[in-house]
């Protein structure tokens, strides 16, 4: 493989990781207008669960992903019932839901972080998994990055398929397009909202689990990922799951090529530059409906 293909692959791998970090948040925002700023904290929780189970029981971290997803899903139902349910019921407008959910998100962020600090301390944690180079067509990658990339893309595509072809997926999409219309045709928000919120946290947990295979984890790791997620979903268009996937890839590619052609010092300038440029050209993201 030539140098350029290798550079592109490197960018796509990072982009796939960005995408899976973002999609859960987009689901919650797209359906319910919940801007869950504690997204990164639940991602961190998923990372800690994976790390804990892997290091104490020696289970393969990929095999743990369904369990982590289930745990975070249940947690999501609880969080929804105690926090967001009341907001959705009492808020007079969508704007108010957005604002209050943002504030509750701050509360959750403090809460979850502190619980993890109490449980495991501030130290860096992590484990070595598939930390072996593999060669594909002459290019070398770390096996865990490739595996995480494949899993992330598969999970995102699976989600897209679910949304497109299943009953519940159709209900979710109908709801995203027209909440009142969907209610008129008999879609029950009382069931759908907690399910989708739980689904969002489950995706965050899986993203965290995947990241724990590649990077070190710590209780303060969440915030940068929340920010990454926000950038990716606005880039792709709020409420567009496919847009998040592509938004993640674009960001990864821009960083890889940009760093090569300019300087790695400019990495952050490039990421935020592309965000600003896209929003100026398309004020509702690349794939707004």
């Amino acid at each position: 493989m030539g140098f350029w293909l290798e550079l592109a692959a490197s960018g796509l791998i990072t982009g796939g990781i960005y995408a899976v970090v973002a999609i859960g948040l987009n689901l919650q925002y797209g359906l319910m207008r919940i801007m869950n700023i504690s997204h990164g904290e639940f991602l961190m929780l998923g990372a800690y669960l994976t790390w804990l189970a892997h290091t104490t029981f020696g289970v393969n971290p990929f095999a743990l992903m369904p369990a982590v997803a289930a745990a975070l899903f249940l947690l999501g139902l609880v969080v929804y019932r105690f926090c967001f349910y009341r907001i959705a019921r009492t808020a007079p407008s969508v704007e108010v839901i957005e604002a209050r959910s943002l504030l509750v998100g701050f509360g959750l962020m403090f809460l979850v972080q502190n619980v993890v600090y109490l449980a495991w301390g501030a130290d860096l944690r992590g484990y070595s998994y598939l930390a072996e180079p593999v060669e594909i067509a002459g290019a070398r990658f770390m096996a865990n990055r490739l595996a995480v990339f494949a899993f992330a893309v598969a999970a995102s595509l699976l989600l897209l398929a679910l949304l497109r072809w299943t009953m519940i997926g159709k209900a979710v999409r109908a709801m995203m397009q027209s909440p009142t219309g969907a209610q008129l045709v008999g879609i029950d928000t009382g069931v759908l909202h907690p399910l989708v919120f739980g689904g969002g946290l489950a995706l965050a947990g899986v993203a965290g689990g995947l990241l724990s295979m590649v990077y070190e984890i710590s209780p303060s790791m969440g915030e940068p990922y929340t920010i990454t997620a926000l950038i990716v979903i606005t880039l792709g268009g709020l409420g567009s799951v496919g847009g998040s996937l592509i938004g993640g890839f674009i960001l990864g590619l821009v960083e890889a090529f940009g760093m090569h052609f300019t300087s790695p010092s400019l990495k952050m300038v490039l990421s935020y530059g592309v965000l600003v440029a896209v929003l100026l050209a398309r004020p509702r993201g690349l794939f707004s409906r």
Binding site: S10, G11, I13, T14, I17, Y215, P224, E255, A256, M259, S263, P264, S265, K267, M268
Partner: peptide, 9 residues
């Protein structure tokens, strides 16, 4: 070469 804090790749 130099890079900013928070680099992922």
């Amino acid at each position: 070469k130099s890079y900013p804090i928070g680099v992922k790749d």
